[in-house]
Design a protein around this nucleic acid. Structure first.
Lengths: 205, 205
DNA sequence: TTGAAAAACGACATTTGTGTCGTTTATAAT
DNA sequence: ATTATAAACGACACAAATGTCGTTTTTCAA
């Protein structure tokens, strides 16, 4: 049902497949999802799917990159908003994401990352490492900027705060993924994180 | 190679199998491990292993409980040591555990928990939920105790601090599991956690 | 209108793991 | 010793996925 077509067509098709895959991963997570599931969900044949993606791992990796690229630039300083306000806002966004974890890729993400234990694979997917480091960089730069404009008086190296920040979010996600948002008391923990950050950054109001 | 034997024998054998399983899970994680692997590692037949454990999930659950039961009682107040000192000590223990994550069940644990997404399964394994809640309780009680003896002046509800505490550790574990301890700068983050706790608990020296 | 290119199809061979079950074998009690 | 018991064995039938590949179908260009 489709021959010699434009690049545009192929891109479109690919995105379509990625979206079907996304739905699958959200409901089944990464480990329990199969290529078969994606075919079924997308209503496409075995051959078609494999023409676009070699295997589940590659498929997930592409989905990850595709999603990331939507998010991007969240921590570029915004005029008319203090850095502290920005953080708070971002945190609320994270919070609702975690609370709706059932409709999110978070669980699948964790599973995917864990599944790459192999050093071998780690090397073949520098993107994974890069992803983390980029996030560290973005946050570090953000904190540093807030400091230079005199908004923060950090009590710890900005980079340490950045990493710590990421850990808390990831941990909360992990725990919530298998216990549910009621059990982990997401909002309460966000408060605690906010409290910690205030202590670390000493925002000058 | 073994018939009609004492209960003691069976218990021994079971522990032996659990230990083999542990080795497997440490090197392969939960998702990639198979019953076959355990048989091979234990040098035992299919039939034998299945006589003790119905399937991988049950096997892991038993291993988990077995391991937990070794740990137990870590946060009972110790005479001659301040609560703060105890926390610090425990944190160092966690740190070295995370740094040696390759030789630990942490990764497998995360994988196992995530694999139980199903609400169905969640209910059939109340132990999983209990486990988390017990940890919360233990920490909460510990913080509360430190407060009543006037050692802490908590700025947040003890329970909130407890949950938060757990999240940070879990997050650090997760990240370290797939990036390695160098990338996540474990000790630096432990410092940050200590800093946070100090801000939250206000230990009176 | 036609035909070459290639997208999509789906049957198939393979692989890998599972859980069962009839058989063998070692133990402990008599 | 003998024997009933049940632990351990390992072949087997089954299931679920995977990746391949020859075939069919559709589109685009000439």
């Amino acid at each position: 049902m489709a021959p010699k077509v434009s690049d545009e067509y192929k891109t479109k098709k690919k995105i379509e497949l990625l979206q079907a895959a996304k739905r699958v991963f959200i409901t089944k997570g990464y480990t329990r999802a199969t290529m078969q599931d994606v075919m079924d969900e997308a209503g496409v044949s075995r051959g078609a799917l494999y023409a676009y993606f070699d295997n589940l791992e590659h498929l997930y990796l592409e989905l990850l990159q595709f999603e990331d690229q939507q998010d991007a630039q969240f921590f570029t300083p915004i005029a008319g908003e203090t850095s502290w306000q920005q953080i708070t806002k971002w945190l609320y966004k994270q919070q609702s994401e975690i609370e709706k974890i059932e409709q999110t890729l978070s669980q699948a993400n964790s599973e995917f990352f864990l599944s790459l234990k192999d050093q071998q694979k780690q090397q073949s997917y520098p993107y994974i490492t890069t992803r983390y480091e980029k996030m560290v960089d973005v946050l570090t730069a953000f904190f540093a900027h807030g400091t230079t404009i005199g908004e923060f008086k950090p009590q710890l190296p900005p980079e340490a705060i950045a990493r710590y920040f990421i850990s808390v979010i990831d941990g909360l996600m992990l725990d919530t993924a298998h216990l549910g948002p009621e059990k982990t008391k997401v909002s309460e923990q966000m408060e605690a994180l906010l409290f910690s950050l205030r202590a670390m950054l000493r925002p000058t109001q």
